[in-house]
Every structure is written in C-alpha cells, then in structure tokens.
Design a protein around this nucleic acid. Structure first.
Lengths: 252, 252
DNA sequence: GCTTGACCTTGACGTTACGGAAGCTTCTAC
DNA sequence: GTAGAAGCTTCCGTAACGTCAAGGTCAAGC
C-alpha cells in the first residue's frame, strides 16, 4: 500500500510542501518515485514522519532531528540540550516581559505597582472539588449533572493537565494586572475568552451567569483565597475582566 | 558635528552592517550622504537609534518599531501587544520544556518523578541577610570585609535585581533536577558556573571552599529551608552540582 | 476523444534581521 | 606615491517552510 503526497499530508496534518521540503533536505525520502515523478510513501516513511513530528514539537531543528533519529544514542543528549535551551529562553522572555511591563508603566506615568506574583506549578494540587458538590447540585441542578458527567470522563492525567493550565491562566491574568493592562484591553479579552472556553468545558454560562461567576470569585471566601494565593487583588481583577468580557462578547 | 557609520557603530554598539540595513529599510536614514556616498549621522539620528535599540531590546520587530516610533500613541498599544506575546511565548516554552523533560524520563525508563516546583518572584523578599553577619565575620573575617563593601555599593534596586536573579537561578536548578539531569551534565555545569560567578560578586571561593559552601546549603537548616521552599531535595542537588563543578573546573 | 478539475511536478521568490564576502572607491597618514 | 583603513554596493546565506507560477498527469463524465 503506498500513498501519494497529498494523502500523507492529510493523514499527518502537515502540508505537501513540507513533505517536499523534507525530501529536498533528505530528512524524509519517499519510498519510491514513479515514472511520472510522483512521490509515493509507505508505512515505514509514515513511522519516520511521526518521529520527526514528535521531535519537531519538542522544538528541535530539522538538522538535529535528522542526526538524532538516525543515531538513537544522541537523542537524549539532544533533548537535554534542548531542555536547557528552552528554560533559558523561557527565562529570557520572562525578564523581557517584566521590562516591557515596567516600560509601559513608565510611559503612562503610572507609579510602579510592585505586584508580587506566586507561580505554583499546580495551585489545585490535592484540591478536593467535591467539597462544592452539594452546594452546586442545589443551585444549578442541570448544569451540575453535565459537569458531573464531564468530570467522570476525565482521567487523572486529564485532571492534572487541566489544573496546571488553570493555574497558568491565573498567573497570566496576574501578569496583565501587574502590567496595569485595562480589563477591556484586547489581550485581556482574549485571555478571558480562554477562561470562558475552559468553563464551557463543564457548562456554558451566558452573559449574566458569567458575570455572576466572576462576582462569586470575589464574594466567596474560598474562591477568593485561591486567587489571593497567586497575587493580591487578583480575584477582583479577574471578576472585572469577566464582566468586561461578558459585556463585550456574550449575549443573554 | 557629524559622525561616520563606523563611529556611530562604536558609540551605539551595533555593527555598521546593521546601520546600513536600517538605512535600506528606511528605519534610520543618515542625516546626509556625502558626494562620495558616505553616510553621515547627526545627534538626531543618534537619539532615534537609541529609541530603536530600546524597543528592539523589548523584542519588537523592526516594522513595529518604525510605526511605533513615528506615531507615539501607538507605542503603548504595541508594547501591550508585545507583552501579551511574550508571556504567551514564555508559557508555551514552559509547556514544551516540561514535555521534553517527561520525554527524557520516558526514554531513560526512569519512573516519572513528579517534583513540585514553586516559583516565587523573589524568594528573598524581606530577607534579612544581616542575621548572618556576626557568624560570617567570625568565620571568614577577610572575605566578610570585602562582601560588606560590595553590599554597601548596591542600591535597593540592585539588591532587588540580584535577589530575583538568584531566585530564578534556583528555579532553573530545580528544573534540571526535575528533568533528572545528572549534576555533571554540561548544562548543569554551565548553570552552576553562573552560580559561582554570582558568588564571586562577593568573594572568590576555590575548589574546597565552593564544595564546602554547597555542603553548608544542606547542613545549615536556614539555608536548606530556603531551597526546600522551591522544591524538595533541591539543596542536596545544588550541593552535588557545586561539588561536581568544583571538581571539574576549580583548582585549589 | 475531449474537457474539466483535482493532483502532481520543479523552480523561484519572500519571510527576519542582519552576517559575511567580493570587488571597487575613497580617505588618511607617511 | 603608496599602503592600509574605511567606505561603498551587491549578492548569497540563514530556518522552515508559504506562496505563487507554469506546466504535466490522472480519473471521470460527456
């Protein structure tokens, strides 16, 4: 069984151009080329492509991928180098981001608000969400059912991932707050949109409900405490952002 | 007073090639061009160049710089966009780095050691280093004098910056630990070299002294507690890294 | 047998922000 | 007068493709 370039492209999600490029640089040669010049790929090439795509996801360059994939022992070394590069680059971006935030504050003549941000890996670690079950079942019976089913469909790893992402989102929001970004700034609206989507994972709040949810983050001490663990005033900022988002993008 | 391209290059730290490039794309035109084709710059151009370099430091593209610099009101908007891009990119790199770490663990068949890492902005905030003064004066009288003078020469902002960087370095080290990187891996040696340099800011430990300092991070409860705030086992890892570095790169 | 449209090919240019080199002209100092 | 430093333009290269352009191939329907 052999596949044409477009078929492989559809199966793997890369473009035909990319496959030709990989052929050009010798990273992934087709199994054979027809008399008409067409490239034909076999399963072996698909497997190799999979490896390539995994390593590409990890940020390796195509040259590194080629050497790593063709000489297995180098792979771990290459990944370690890449890991070091990644965290170095991440820290550089973090520093630059802070400088940009300070510069914005300067330009606006705003006093430098030194917001202290804590960055836990996973704020919800060991968090027992069932403590809210009775209350939620009572207040929103239908939504509770849906949410319950969603929760049941998640593995531990899914939960872990979701918690990490939620924590990271809270931290990003704290950074917008620290940078003095108004809650109706497009960037904050986008970030809040992500938050709305993550809520939609469980239920779909309309304008009123979403605004209300934001208020709850402030009014309910348990929620507020979680936000405050990241940064002082974050619950209020988050609530304001949600209100602004609901106003701008949600309908009743 | 006009300056030639090489003079401007020396004054500003960019290359002449870069200045020609900025001329080509219209970002920074010389004040005038001589009959011989030479570019001559005046103070106005130097000021503009300074602005360009600041914005370039902040990660803006040259096109963005051009529009931002020529229409002041756009500047803050451009910076806000850039800030959002930066933290988005930073988070993406953080996610990829975690995946790489997991992949390495997989490939090595190592059990997934879930190290929890805390990432405070500044671990030493409100830290009173003078609590160690008496002890240090007693144990290393000469070095203490030098360190004291160094400390006096630093402004509050310097201290703040140093503390942030020290915290970030501890977090990076925790990540190497979480990734299972051996302490004698080149990346860890490099990171430890940075630590050694930061220590050299105050005094210059030789092989024995540096190894000893590492042991103190583990043995002295107060030091160890600080490392443990970032991650469990970090003090031991840091000490081992310092011993490996001393062994490999320092002499007695 | 012809047309149509989907699919394939190679080749070349554009992207970012310059680095580097070739080949030539100009300035400056001795 | 000449050497060497400095200047100029022009072109190629970078990473990983995207995006035409111009043309050949294939399968299906009429």
């Amino acid at each position: 069984m052999s596949w044409s370039i477009a078929q492989v492209a559809r199966m793997s999600g890369v473009t035909a151009r990319t496959l030709r490029h990989y052929d050009d640089i010798g990273l992934l040669k087709p199994d054979h080329v027809g008399a008409n010049g067409y490239r034909y790929y076999e399963e072996a090439q698909l497997l190799r492509l999979q490896q390539i795509l995994v390593l590409r996801e990890l940020g390796l360059g195509l040259a590194d991928i080629a050497t790593a994939i063709d000489s297995e022992p180098d792979l771990i070394a290459a990944l370690r180098r890449q890991h070091a590069r990644l965290i170095g680059e991440r820290d550089r971006l973090a520093r630059v981001a802070r400088t940009v935030a300070r510069t914005i504050a300067d330009l606006e003549g705003r006093p430098e608000v030194a917001v202290r941000i804590n960055r836990p890996e996973n704020l919800f670690e060991g968090f027992d969400s069932s403590q809210y079950d009775d209350e939620a079942r009572e207040r929103w019976p239908e939504d509770f059912e849906r949410a319950q089913r969603t929760r049941e469909s998640m593995t531990d790893a899914d939960v872990e991932r979701w918690q990490r992402e939620a924590t990271a989102a809270m931290i990003r929001m704290a950074e917008f707050m620290a940078a003095g970004t108004p809650v109706d700034d497009p960037a904050v609206l986008d970030e809040t949109h992500q938050h709305w989507l993550s809520i939609c994972h469980w239920w779909t709040p309309n304008r009123t409900a979403y605004t209300c949810l934001g208020r709850m983050y402030v009014d309910d001490e348990r929620f507020k405490a979680n936000y405050t663990k990241i940064a002082e005033g974050l619950a209020e900022y988050q609530a304001a952002a949600m209100a602004a988002y609901a106003e701008a993008r949600l309908s009743d």
